[in-house]
Design a protein around this nucleic acid. Structure first.
Length: 223
DNA sequence: GTTAGGG
DNA sequence: CCCTAAC
């Protein structure tokens, strides 16, 4: 009674197992089958097909626009080549988050709130076949961890070392920290979060009611 | 179906 | 990034 069936997967619908992920460019197959409708942002075809197959090198991704130049010094290694194969089982294909994407994500979070990954994805990342809501949340987690969980000992020893150390602009870091603070996203530091029941706390009860009401807004009845 | 947490 | 549990 302690555990409730760990949702065993269907071995029959597991496609072809590991044979495909190392041979062909269809590791998941879930997101690859829905990108023929209206997507196709700017990548020709091979960029999203291989998705870091450690086979070919992708020189430039989607940064050839004319509205962003600050991202040039962000995530200098866009190749995802020789280095990825050394990892082994995990992280075979990693999409390098550009500064533009990070800013877009932060902006969406600040507008729609933390937790509305689907809304943000539909509104801001609708043109990206990759970057699922889970990816957005994951990136946000990493962003918060890297932006707020720092002590900044001494006076930044960032003389001329690689940009890989701190590629994020101070403005973005500030924004991420602020957002994480006002939303009290879990797993950050949790200084003194009182885990009391909403009924005991008037403030929290009010918040709960607001949340409920918000969820009830789009509750249209149909008979 | 989506979100939160862990690997 | 990938998988699982919970909502």
């Amino acid at each position: 009674m302690l555990l409730r069936q760990k949702r065993l997967r269907k071995p029959t619908q597991r496609y072809i197992d590991e044979s495909s992920r190392i041979s062909s460019a269809a590791p998941r197959g879930k997101r690859l089958k829905v990108q023929h409708d209206n997507e196709l942002p700017e990548v020709p075809s091979e960029t999203r097909s291989l998705r870091g197959s450690s086979k070919k090198v992708v020189p430039r991704l989607e940064l050839h626009s004319d509205d962003d130049l600050t991202a040039s010094d962000y995530e200098d290694d866009k190749k995802t080549t020789k280095r990825s194969k050394l990892i082994g089982d995990r992280r075979k294909h990693q999409r390098m988050w550009t500064l533009e994407e990070v800013v877009k994500l932060v902006d969406g979070i600040s507008q729609y709130g933390v937790g509305k990954w689907t809304a943000i994805k539909r509104l801001l990342f609708s043109s990206s076949t990759y970057r699922t809501p889970i990816d957005l949340r994951d990136k946000w987690r990493n962003l918060v961890k890297s932006s707020c969980g720092h002590k900044q000992k001494r006076k930044e020893v960032e003389h001329n070392l690689k940009q890989t150390a701190r590629p994020l602009p101070k403005t973005v870091r500030r924004r991420v920290c602020e957002l994480a603070t006002i939303h009290q996203y879990p797993k950050i530091n949790s200084p003194k979060i009182d885990h009391v029941t909403p009924a005991k706390h008037p403030a929290r009860a009010k918040v709960a009611q607001l949340s409920l009401r918000e969820k009830n807004v789009h509750r249209k009845n149909s008979t």
